[in-house]
């Protein structure tokens, strides 16, 4: 039981972080450089998960994923299963929930580079695409590491969204935090202690190594 929950949690966190990086790299790069009137709107929407109760997010996502909604219906007709109460439903929920934790460190790093870094690359003949891969991304490595670690750790630690849209199906949607809740409800304190203690220690070690490394890399996180 605990092994399958642990495996599922890691799989969910890895998948979520990977997809978030794919979305957030271009988005952060755009936000760092744009002067568009859209910028504060995008920033506000992206930061919403920081202030909203996860249940609010979960509630709307659940409605969106239900077969009665066009999005949920499309998913069901394409993939032959409902999005809610499935692994991919969890991935989408986790992405919404952890988005600011991946986006913000990346955005701060790109902002810190200033426009001159790109300009210098352009004057050497590098297109914006090449300048991004050859110069800006390697220079953003500390921010990239911070974003990855925070996105991963935050996904491991989520509860509300997962419970709302994933439920508690062992092997499918039962991640560690849900299993912990389940064990406490059924007064199984021994297993609850193992899970809770394990999460505290690994999270602490992860954050410690990040901040420790970051003090060398001289980039602020969070």
């Amino acid at each position: 039981m605990i092994t399958s929950a642990l495996f599922l949690t890691l799989k969910l966190a890895l998948t979520t972080t990977l997809f978030l990086l794919i979305i957030c790299l271009p988005l952060a790069s755009w936000l760092a450089n744009t002067r568009s009137w859209l910028k504060p709107w995008v920033e506000s929407v992206v930061a919403l998960p920081l202030v909203l109760p996860p249940t609010v997010l979960g509630f709307y996502l659940l409605l969106l994923m239900s077969p009665q909604h066009p999005v949920g219906a499309w998913w069901q007709s394409t993939f032959g299963q409902t999005l809610a109460f499935s692994f991919w439903g969890l991935v989408i929920g986790s992405m919404a929930y952890s988005l600011p934790f991946v986006l913000q460190p990346l955005q701060r790093t790109f902002e810190g580079q200033g426009r001159q870094i790109s300009e210098a690359a352009y004057t050497l003949g590098a297109s914006p695409w090449r300048a991004f891969w050859d110069i800006r991304l390697p220079l953003a490595l500390p921010g990239l590491v911070a974003a990855t670690v925070l996105g991963f750790a935050h996904t491991v630690g989520e509860f509300g969204v997962v419970l709302m849209i994933g439920g508690n199906i062992p092997g499918q949607t039962q991640v560690l935090s849900i299993l912990l809740f389940d064990q406490v409800e059924s007064l199984n304190y021994t297993l609850a202690h193992q899970i809770a203690g394990g999460l505290v220690v690994t999270s602490l070690l992860t954050l410690f190594s990040l901040y420790r490394w970051n003090s060398h890399a001289a980039v602020r996180v969070g």
């Binding site: 300009e119 352009y122 004057t123 050497l124 590098a126 110069i135 390697p138 220079l139």
Partner: peptide, 28 residues
């Protein structure tokens, strides 16, 4: 645009790519 034309500019404050060595940056 800057990357398409035949003009190169040296900025007032030299812009260094911190992940390059001197040889790498000149090769770039």
């Amino acid at each position: 645009h800057g990357w398409q034309n035949q003009v190169t500019l040296v900025h007032q404050q030299p812009v260094m790519f911190a992940h390059h060595t001197v040889a790498q940056t000149i090769a770039y």
